[in-house]
Nucleic acid binder design. Structure first.
Lengths: 211, 211, 211, 211
DNA sequence: AATGAATGAGAATTCATTCAT
DNA sequence: GATGAATGAATTCTCATTCAT
């Protein structure tokens, strides 16, 4: 009888060997997810791809959900890290410049492991801890709101929370959609220009408008 | 598991009874999907919920994928129908008015079967024919482009395809996100106002600006 | 992910075929249990022994526990039926005669499927519904108490509940132990004589003593 | 699963530290057995509970069966020791007094680690060396027989082996059943009185009867 | 057309046991 | 002696799909 699976990570590795194994498993998970899709990514297949026994997989990840959740976290952490670090850099830039910088940054962030990102977005059910792909958005929203608070004089009057929601949701969606449907426009700058325009026009005072 | 499933519909309904059965099955599918989630929605469970034998289910839908695809189609058709019909009505309105109308329409459209919509968006893997939830967007984009072509004089200069992509993707994403995370703001109009502002400011000439 | 297994029986069979399948499964369960022991009796092995697919097994028994519980029930029902029917027959006999009859009856009851009984007693963990092997004792205790109430004049003064507990527990234990460790003494009558003496001497008035 | 396990003890403890380790393991086994039940008591869990590595566990116990068997032995030894020592004390007492003493002793013996005793009786499959929980009964039977040989003049004529079997089996069963189903009656003396009556009346001459 | 019994590959997960460090 | 990472066969259970009635 299979008891209810846990979702929290299992024990911390205590030997160097473990670290390597964990890494191999996560990397294999990404590979299998991309190659086979979420539904065909069984724990056995993943273990095999990692060159590890299923037992080892379950030693570190108590369930399939925990495994994918860990991968999601690793992925979003990577993306968030870049965003956070950039925030300080653009904190003092005026609207148009900051927007352009951030949009480009976000596009770059999504270009890191686009295939994995796509699978995570499209196929992983947004349920339980798996939904945390969307944590990036939550963090982005907080940063966005913080930036707006520091620049209210440049902005038309807005409800900060609502505006942050609108901006981040739109930009994220455009980035994802572009990744999936228009990968070429990600690199030639045309998309960055459009998204920047969207944000600047939405938030800016008429006088502050930049073409 | 048996051989690979077909995906094309099996046979056209030839009697009234068939229609009723098909309808019962699709409705049951929606109910089970919402109640149990995609993963626990087995064909047996759906058949039972429909008061029909599995055999009958397979008489009309050659595979689970075909079944869900049919439901997706029914759902998107419902939404698209409203959009198309509204298009004629707003075709001649100026930017600000048209935008407001369409945004409100879209929000209303998403309010029809929000629970089903949410499951379809969040849990159904966007693979193969199942990805057609996104057909709505494609149709919306065509309509949006058509409208813009008719109103170029009101708009700042834009790449029509790109702008349609930006507008539709953003508005859709905001609608979905609002459905899921801010259901209350859907009804009090505050969201409609923000989204309208986003679109009008993005597309409009500086002079044509409406606060 | 395997959800918590149910323990209640599944759906009632609606075709004659089902009945046969259910029977085949239960019979195979008994056979495998006896031949392989509880731990080696996997659902797959049982299904194979029944000439049926695992799927069919789970169609009727939602978990391994439910399966074994059903077998336990079938077995205890068989035993209880004999006991209950005999009760009426001995209801009017005096102590010594009734005791002898009942003891012999019980010994016969345990001789029906002794190998299965042994496995059920020795190897099936007495947990949850599986513990119901012991229902026979509960029922026996009620019958025993009823008999004693009708014959208080033949008995020394006793706490009826306590005495029923003492009598039934002892007799059951002796029967089981004999089944397992002294199968020969079950048939030659010597054991029946001893157990009868135990009961009669324990319950009877000194004057009513039978050697 | 690896090759078939050995069952014989691995090596004699040669240092004080070993003794302590072995003890920690056995104690942990008892704790886990009681807390989790036999089926969920894995060697890994036991090792962890003992604050020892699985490797160490296998250093001293070559298999899970050997481990549990050792615990069973420790437990039964504890119980038997008391019984044997008491035997000398009651060897010269007359029937009624001896019976009362022994019954009370047995009840006390079962009160030592009742939770462990219960798990051992109810959940540990009585197979192979694990069946040795029942060794206590065998030893008891020998002692009982010895006592009866010394007191034939007080007893009605009986087959000594058969009578020892009847007495010990009944008393044991009553003690177990009481431990599980009527723990309260264990302490208030009422049960001891009943069981003593059962034994004395079964074995005694009519004239020697004690109420 | 409908029924529902039957199928069986495959998925997640556990656990006794080994062995390199 | 001790550690704990690694193993992988085995187990329970699900579910899309078929087909005899």
């Amino acid at each position: 009888m299979a008891p209810k699976p846990r979702t929290s990570p299992r024990k911390p590795p205590q030997q160097a060997r473990s670290k390597a194994t964990i890494d191999a498993i996560l990397t294999a998970t990404a590979r299998v997810l991309v190659k086979e899709g979420f539904d065909r990514a069984s724990t056995n297949r993943i273990a095999e791809a990692a060159g590890v026994s299923v037992g080892s997989l379950y030693q570190y990840f108590p369930s399939k959900e925990a495994l994918v959740a860990a991968l999601v976290e690793r992925h979003t952490d990577l993306m968030s890290a870049e965003l956070s670090s950039a925030f300080e850099r653009v904190a003092k830039l005026p609207l148009a410049a900051a927007a352009r910088e951030l949009v480009e940054l976000l596009l770059r962030a999504h270009a890191i492991e686009p295939a994995l990102h796509k699978v995570l977005i499209e196929q992983v059910p947004r349920v339980g801890r798996l939904g945390h792909v969307h944590d990036v958005e939550a963090r982005s929203m907080r940063l966005q709101r913080a930036w707006m608070e520091m620049h209210t004089d440049e902005l038309r009057p807005v409800d900060l929370d609502l505006a942050a929601f609108v901006v981040v949701t739109s930009v994220e969606a455009l980035t994802h959609a572009a990744t999936i449907y228009h990968p070429k426009k990600l690199t030639d700058g045309s998309l960055a220009t459009e998204i920047t325009a969207l944000v600047v026009r939405y938030l800016g005072k008429p006088s502050a408008r930049v073409a």
